[in-house]
Amino acid sequence: MKAFQRETGLAAPLDRANVDTDQIIPKQFLKSIKRTGFGDNLFDAWRFLDEGDIGLTPNERRLNHRFVLNQPRYQEAGVLLARRNFGCGSSREHAVWALLEYGFFAVIAPSFADIFFENCFKNGLLPIRLDEAVVDDLFERAQGDGGLELTIDLETLQIQLPDGGEIAFEVPPGNRRKLLEGLDDIGLTLAQADRIRTFEASYYQRHPWLKRGAGADEETAP
């Protein structure tokens, strides 16, 4: 995973609450068996007027010019400003892959759904929770003339505003370190392999009926 220390980018305001992962990346694109190729279909049903499918490129589609991300001023945006409960619904990690591939490195919202929030950190996308009033203010600035460029510093946990102002934010400490160093989550756990094995030995002594496992071969069933 790519490390995240400090990034600067324009903020795009997506002014609706409860944006679910079905909207972030509609189901027809989940048929891919890869982790890439989702950016072109981020918010597909909102960005385009026609129904998309795997294999169609944006050039072949009818753009919805009224959708915020299609406005010329928000091209190249790196930060997505969102409303409460962003990322609710399906657990699809494809939503995070699509946001990253489109070019976002952070999402700022008053609240996030749990699974989406965790999925972000597994992939190097930074979700930032801020008070609703602060988010309201950022929306106003991002929608105002000239837009809003933000520098997000994960090291100091500060967002720098163009007028020199700063907003402090918090990130769960474990996730912060993982992102800062671009650590491999599985590697971190496998460093504890001995501990897991010791646990397993006592666990199956306490729960002998679980030892065989639901996925044990039928052929070897007693």
């Binding site: 068996i33 890869k34 769960p172 646990f199 679980l210």
Partner: peptide, 25 residues
């Protein structure tokens, strides 16, 4: 199981169910 060095808890998992959409990657 205990805490990992980054402070996350390690929880032992008994059963994982898999289907075709979220497992290939």
């Amino acid at each position: 199981i205990g805490e990992r060095e980054d402070g996350q808890s390690l929880l032992y998992i008994d059963l994982q169910l898999l289907h075709e959409v979220t497992s290939p990657q």
